[in-house]
Simulated scan of single mutants.
Amino acid sequence: MRKQLTAYISLALAMAIVGSSVVVGKLMVETIPVFLSSGLRFLIAAIVLVILLFCFEKGFPALTKKDVFVLLIQSFTGVFLFSICLLYGVGMTTGMESGIITSTTPMAVGILAFFLLKEKIEKRMALGIVLAVMGVMTINLFGAGGDGGNPHALLGNLLVAAAVVGEALFTLLAKMLSPHISALAISTFVSLFGFLFFLPFAAYEALSFDFSAPGIVDWSYVLYYALIVTVLAFYLWYSGVTKVPAGISGIFTSVLPVSAVALSGIILKEQFTFIHMLGVAFVIGGIFVTVLKKETAKDSQHLAS
C-alpha cells in the first residue's frame, strides 16, 4: 500500500511540474529569447542525462540506423518544434489557456494514431476527443481572445495546439524504436539532438543578446526547465508509472491543467473565469474517459523532453 501511495505521489508531482512549465516558460521568454533559452536548457539537461545514463546504464546503447532516424524525427517534432510553438504561444496567450490546451495530448495521440497508424478509435476514445475539442473551442471562442481583449490570444492558442501535435508525434514515433532502448536513453538522445537543432539559432541570438540584462531569477527559469521539468519530472513519472496500471497512471495527466491554471492564477495573477472552469471540466472529463482504456506506459515518454 505504501509503495502504491508513493507511486501516486510521484505521478501527481510529475504532472504538476509539467503544468508549471507553462507558467515558467511564459516568464522565461519575457527576458531570454526562445531559441537561446531552449538551447541552454537542452544543453544543461543533456549533460545531466548523459551523466545519469553512464551511472545507471554504463553508457550509450547500440542504435540501428532506423533508431537514429526515429530519434532525430522525435527530437525535431517533440523537442524542437514543440518548444518553439509552446514558448512563442504562451507569450501571446495566457498561462491558464496554454495549460488547458497542452493537456489534450492523449486525445491528439489517438487522432494521429487513427490517421497515421490506422489504429481504431474506440467509442471511449472518441468521446474523450469530443470533450477535449469542446474544452479547447470553449476557451478559444470565449476566453482571452474571444472578446477581442487580446488580439494575439487566438494565434497563441493555435501555436500551443501545434505544440500538442508535435508532442503527440513524439509519442507515436516512440513505438518505432527498438525495445532495448530505455526511457533514460531516449531522453538523453532527444535532449542531445534537441540541443543540436537549437544550436545555430541560439548562437545567432546570443551574438546580439546582452547576457547581463537578465537577473538571477530570470536565469533560474532556464535551470528550472532543464533540471526540474526535463530531468526530475522524468524521474518522478517513471518511478511511479512502473508501479501502477497504465490506465491509472494516465488519469494523473489531469493534474497538468489543474496545476497550470492554479499556478497561472497565483504566480501570473491571471483571472480564473467561468469559461476557464468550463474548459478545464471538458478537458479533464476527456482525459478521464480516454485513459480508462488500456495504454502502454511508454506513451508518456515526452515528459523527458
Rank of each mutant, 00 (worst) to 15 (best):
T94Q: 05
L154G: 09
V50K: 02
I51R: 07
S220C: 13
F252G: 02
F193L: 15
V79Q: 03
I266T: 09
E270H: 00
V244I: 10
V164Q: 00
V22A: 14
A246S: 11
T93L: 07
I73P: 00
V160I: 09
V18N: 07
M176C: 13
I186H: 11
A132V: 01
F211H: 09
L155F: 12
V133C: 14
L196E: 01
L236K: 00
G128M: 10
G135V: 05
G166Y: 05
L154Q: 13
S208A: 15
F288W: 14
F189A: 15
Q301A: 12
I181V: 15
V48M: 01
S83V: 08
I84M: 08
K3I: 14
A16D: 02
Y235T: 08
F69W: 13
A206R: 03
S182T: 15
F142T: 14
D67P: 05
A62I: 08
E57T: 10
V222S: 01
L256W: 00
A12H: 00
F195G: 10
V70Q: 03
Y224L: 09
M92V: 05
G39W: 08
A45K: 03
C55I: 15
L11S: 07
I284E: 04
Q4H: 06
M28W: 02
L40Y: 01
V283T: 08
L127G: 08
Q301E: 11
A14F: 02
